[in-house]
Structure formats: structure tokens, C-alpha cells
Write a protein that binds this DNA or RNA. Sequence first.
DNA 1: CTTCAAATTTGTACTCATTACATATTTGTA
DNA 2: TACAAATATGTAATGAGTACAAATTTGAAG
Lengths: 137, 137
Amino acid sequence: MSAAAERLKEYGIKPSVQRVAIMEYLLNHKTHPTVDMIHHELSEKIETLSKTTVYNTLKLFAEAGAILTLNIDENTTRYDGDTSHHAHFKCMCCGDIYDMTPSDQDWDKIGFKNGDGFKITEEELYLKGYCPKCNKQ
Amino acid sequence: MSAAAERLKEYGIKPSVQRVAIMEYLLNHKTHPTVDMIHHELSEKIETLSKTTVYNTLKLFAEAGAILTLNIDENTTRYDGDTSHHAHFKCMCCGDIYDMTPSDQDWDKIGFKNGDGFKITEEELYLKGYCPKCNKQ
DNA sequence: CTTCAAATTTGTACTCATTACATATTTGTA
DNA sequence: TACAAATATGTAATGAGTACAAATTTGAAG
């Protein structure tokens, strides 16, 4: 079984051609793609793939916790197949989104002065600025 | 001069009735309002206020660094008149957005294992979960 | 195999946040 | 008072995302 199909099984999601293809795409492309990118690429393999299916499938994955949904981009949602604990960086020049790995001990240590009574279930750290490529120019 | 007008001056923004009113609203309402909320409230005072003006003005403020733009909400952009270093929490139950104040020394100390060559100009920490009110029920 | 219901996918129509743009109004200055 | 520059306004367009009904596929029972 492919890694993508394995991952679906792990999260209790029934596999289908479309679902496996979308999960496979996310596992193989660390570019934090948009719905359009995924749909455009996969349309070549699955001719009938509908954009609605891409939307529905990504929502299904996200609600199951099998992928992450990123709101770092102002215009459109981006998706990440890597659900491990990490931050994201968006280059304001080229628009590319990079993974950033915080030193875990630092990250885990963040406390909140007014955090009493709040139950935190999700954390997203978004960084913006200029990537090494754009920074040089 | 009102605090709002002072703030505009500080950031090199020419005051106008609309601009001062919008900045004033942001300084007095710590609720991280949407364009619609601001427009709806201020329409009572300024009858002719157009939604386009609210959009334009908020963009102007944000680009000058006089306010913050929040993407914590999936559907719509929210604005924050408090530009100090703090995080945001969204309750997945009631939808309210709270300010969270990290212990500064922790926050500032976060390092990134793969951060070389990146120039970070902005940081946004978004937390999601359940607020004290909703958590109790 | 065949049947049939449930699950999945598809395409179209729609909503709604945001932007583009042309026009109108206001402001400041000569 | 006149006039140019800056602001504000309203309408029309864009584009991401969703609702929904119809079509297709799947899988189990006979």
C-alpha cells in the first residue's frame, strides 16, 4: 500500500482514487499548495477531477487531523501534509512558503500571562519577511 | 487632539473625519473587528460612510504599521489597533478573539533550527481552542 | 452475475469578502 | 474665488469557497 493510502487508513478515511492522489500530492510536494495548484496538477492524471472534490477532500482530511490548513496567505488557503509541530515562513517578495523548525524546548516553554481557563487545541506560528534568495538581491 | 488623531500623525497619515473615526473605533474596541462590524457601527455617526472607504483606510493604516491585520479567522480579515507584541486566541465555540500575552522573555528567545539567511519582519502567533466561558459548559 | 442502497464525485449556481475603477466631494492653497 | 490634489463614494467586477442536486462508483446481499 502506498504511503498515502496508509496515511488515510491511519486516520480512518476510506481511500478512493481521488483521495489517495490528493494525499500523495501533499506528501510529495512540500510547497504548501493551494486548491488550484493541486487541482491543476492532478487534472493531468485524473481527467475528470472536479475542484469541488479537491475542496471537499481537503476539508475532510483537515477535520480528521490528517493534514494542516494554513492561513498565512491573505488571499487563499494553503495545505500542508506535514502535521508535525513546526512554524511557517512566507517570503513577502517571492511568495514562497517555507517550513521553519523552532527549537522545541523554546517553543514548548512559551507561557501566557493571561492564559488561565483557556484550553488551547491548536497553535500556528506565522513568520513573514524575506527568504535567503530574495534577501541577497 | 484625540488619541486617534495623535496616532495618525505619529504614523504620517493625514487625518480626516473617516480616518479618525476608524482609528478611534479600533482604539476603543479591543474585539478585533471585521470591516463589516466597523462599517456597521460607524455608519450611525457618519451616514455616508462607504464600505470601500473602510477597506481603503484599514489597508492604509496597516501598510503604515499603525494597526495589525489578523488572519486568524478563516472567512474574514480582522483588525487590531494594538500593535504591541502579543498573540491571539480564537475560541472555536463562540468565535470570540482574545489577546494573549506571552511571557516576553520566552517569546523573544525562540530560535529556528533552519532560520539562517531568513530576514523575519513579522511574527503572528495564532492559538485556537475554547475560551473560559465556553470551556465551562 | 445482478441488484440496490450508501458513499463518493461532479458540475452548476450561488454567496460573500475584497478590489478596480470612475465619479463625486472635500481640502488646502494661491 | 478658483483650482489642483487628496479623499471618499458607489457600482461593477473578481475570485475563493460552498450548497446542492444529479451522476457515478462501490460494496454487500441475494
